[in-house]
């Protein structure tokens, strides 16, 4: 094959104003303009979005899955970060 494959892009869609862009999938496109248009055609055919981000997949960096314990477990015993940790009198309805 002499033909170079179009790069892969990750697609993020904002479903409606006020929400985050959320990863929905990927696609191939020659450039970012085409990637945005393809994302529109592929991922918003049923009114799924109002805004599109595309990022070429190779620019996404991620942590190693093997580091999962070291990265995320230490947060599990910090219960004082959650409101339920604090005991308040019942008559205080909402705080």
């Amino acid at each position: 094959m002499t033909n170079k494959e179009w790069p892969l892009w990750e697609v993020f869609i904002r479903a409606k104003q006020g929400l985050n862009h959320k990863h929905v999938g990927s696609l191939h496109a020659a450039d970012y303009q085409m990637a945005i248009e393809n994302a529109r055609d592929v991922y918003t055919r049923r009114l799924e979005g109002v805004s599109i981000w595309v990022v070429e997949s190779k620019y996404i960096h991620a942590n190693e899955p093997s580091e999962q314990d070291a990265l995320f477990d230490p947060a599990s015993d910090k219960i004082y970060r959650h409101p339920t940790f604090y005991v308040l009198p019942e008559e205080l309805n909402h705080m």
Binding site: W6, L27, E37, N38, D41
Partner: peptide, 11 residues
């Protein structure tokens, strides 16, 4: 010529 453009032209 490519899946993405098949979808685009159909739209």
């Amino acid at each position: 010529p490519v899946l993405e453009q098949d979808i685009a032209l159909t739209n």
